[in-house]
Design a binder for these strands. Structure first.
Lengths: 226, 226, 226, 226
DNA sequence: AATGAATGAGCCTTCATTCAT
DNA sequence: GATGAATGAAGGCTCATTCAT
């Protein structure tokens, strides 16, 4: 009754897949090694054997999920670097929201769990993964804000945009709390919803940025006149 | 070593206080009855005696934290109902962000944990608690959107504002992940930061709403001309 | 909200009543002080206060139940001492079976529980209570067995009769196991059933005793001839 | 200190053996997993690992004890099916009493405990196990009762016989109560005692059944004459 | 005299991890 | 290399009992 030994690496991959899914669904603590291994058709000892422990598996499963997601949804949303700046912003918003909406983008759920209830295990990997994406965002927002925006203004605008991108995820989570029945949730959102969402966030944010910019500039002018 | 029996309700209150704090910090699963009781200077059996179990304590501790927070920060931000509508919006944004910023507003942390990793235990109480707050928001946004906004437009704008209010919380959480040392975090923010934040979000959002409104109205005009 | 202090002894009596009932239903271990006190409308500390502990309450509750039962059903079944010997046997069988059938004769249930899973707490009291009843039985059976029955024969015949008296109780218990729904059980038995039962056991046993007696006597005769 | 892994099933078997013994001795509630595991030379978690919980272990331990007992003492007592009917009855009485007397026939003790203080866990298994044994008994008694006995008469006679078989067990239990020192009890009974007991019960019962039969028949005759 | 809040010991269970095979 | 039986630490809960009032 021993399992066929097709490939030693297949079990490893299965473990990563089920780990990312289950960690995403239940968080680090509630997810059990036993359940992950069962879903991966592997022995209870397999996780320890292949990864050395629950913590290591957690880190690897996040890397796995992130890499998959990054591959599927490049951060620039597929928009060329020489496209109009508004188009680039829209591309990046689209990229984030696609991830947010994809019900298999376990990466975000793991990250979300980590934010709520940090294990401290993802610090390094998350740092390395996310920073490049953020940096790309900053350049666009800086350009949109025009001449000499303050560091703080840039950060606040990025915050405003990012927050809106995650808003729908939070909305879904909130619904998960309030009505504990298994909701259709993200999986029900279709592409039209996505377009509508992205349109809204882009438009809303561009207007917001312009407003902040006008403020910046009038302040600069006032200063020049002084 | 038996505790003085000064007030029959004191232990109960202590338990609620330490429970809300620890549940907020660690989430339902990671928080242990033992730790909560120890911090409340009570026996391990006290929690079960007073509340009947961990789950009931969890629900009560959320109620406790919510009530405390609601009392401290009324949802309308202390702005009169006949104040200019922009002022009312600012008041509500301020109310939320005060909660978000208050490092002792454990309510939000419990809620946040629940969103990430729902136990399903808070469904009813959360529903009852936050719905009134949401409803007040909707009226303001509707008025700002002018004539005949669609349901969807209202919902999207509310989402944009709410999301920005919670953005700083997420930002802090992210920092908690990336540098796992106990950060000063929210407690380091001072009132100036708060004003800056609220100003930004209000301004950004009003501009965003105006943008959406202009779109609504041009659509209506186009329709009339047709 | 303090209870009226009608009589300090009333609580005591209530405790005994509910204790005997609950100990009978659940056994010593499964019965909880809390439940007994609740049913007696008394404080959780009342049992310890009035009786000194769970064990003492157990012993007293058995005494209480036994005394009540003994009062209601005198061991001789109300048959005069000079009645025909068969009548006296029938009277005693009737007396036992009435107790067995009475759904409020908690004494038997407590005893039964004790037989199955002895706490060793009733040793002394049970010994003192039951022995007189047994002795009365032995005299009758001896007389029915005629000349010179052996000690063993007497004991075996008494066993046969007693066992049959408890048979219906066991039958009911067995039904309790096999169909765990709350059965009508003993309370459904009416007086006709009782008569039928007692008739059967008396007849069956008298025939059995005669058989044993004939054996005794033929043995004696054979011995004489030898 | 880790146990040698000689046979994967050995621990399981040890657990069943000690479980049946301890459950028999103390009943479901008073028996502790810790004690069972200790006696089985296993870790406290072993019971849960192998059986999933205390309740499941209880059920399995009864099955184990019953199967062992059934194997050792076949219900018909080893008497051929074409033997004289009285012989068959004696065989069955012998089979029961052997079980009753065997101090390692834990099955009966568990069952007895269950009757006194039902957990409701054995309902199904007990039902399935003992029904066949009962059915075999009924056929014999019916034949002994001759023409047209009523259902009730059959049931009462079976009750009388069964009750007598269990009488000695009860007697021993009673002694266990009255003198709480660990008695030699059943183990002291030797084979002569067994023969004596079986002889007595068989003789006593056959006489009883004949008595009931004569009553049946005279009733029938009376009816025919009417 | 009587109460009820508080206690601590004990139990069952879960689970990540280890180890002999 | 891979398994699954076995382990021990830890957590939640129950309950008889105690003690200040």
């Amino acid at each position: 009754m021993r399992k066929q030994r097709i490939d030693g690496q297949e079990t490893r991959r299965n473990l990563l897949a089920s780990a990312s899914e289950i960690f995403a669904k239940k968080g680090f603590r509630d997810a059990t090694i036993a359940e992950i291994c069962r879903q991966a058709n592997a022995n209870v000892a397999a996780a320890n054997y292949h990864f050395g422990g629950k913590e290591a598996l957690y880190v690897e499963s996040w890397r796995f999920a992130f890499a998959k997601s990054l591959n599927t949804y490049p951060p620039n949303g597929g928009v060329a670097e020489d496209a109009p700046i508004e188009e680039q912003l829209r591309g990046r918003i689209m990229a984030i929201m696609r991830r947010v909406i994809d019900p298999q983008s376990y990466e975000l759920d793991i990250f979300y769990n980590e934010m709520a209830n940090s294990t401290g295990l993802l610090a390094e990997t998350v740092q390395q993964s996310i920073e490049p994406i953020f940096r790309g965002f900053a350049a666009i927002v800086k350009e949109l804000l025009g001449t000499q925006p303050s560091e703080q203004q840039v950060r606040l605008c990025i915050m405003s945009i990012h927050a809106q991108c995650f808003g729908p995820l939070m909305r879904e989570r909130r619904r998960k709390i309030i009505s504990p029945d298994p909701l259709p949730a993200r999986s029900e959102w279709n592409l039209d919803d996505l377009e509508t969402l992205v349109d809204h966030v882009t438009r809303f944010s561009l207007a917001g940025i312009r407003e902040i910019r006008s403020r910046v500039e009038s302040a600069v002018i006032a200063e020049q006149h002084a």
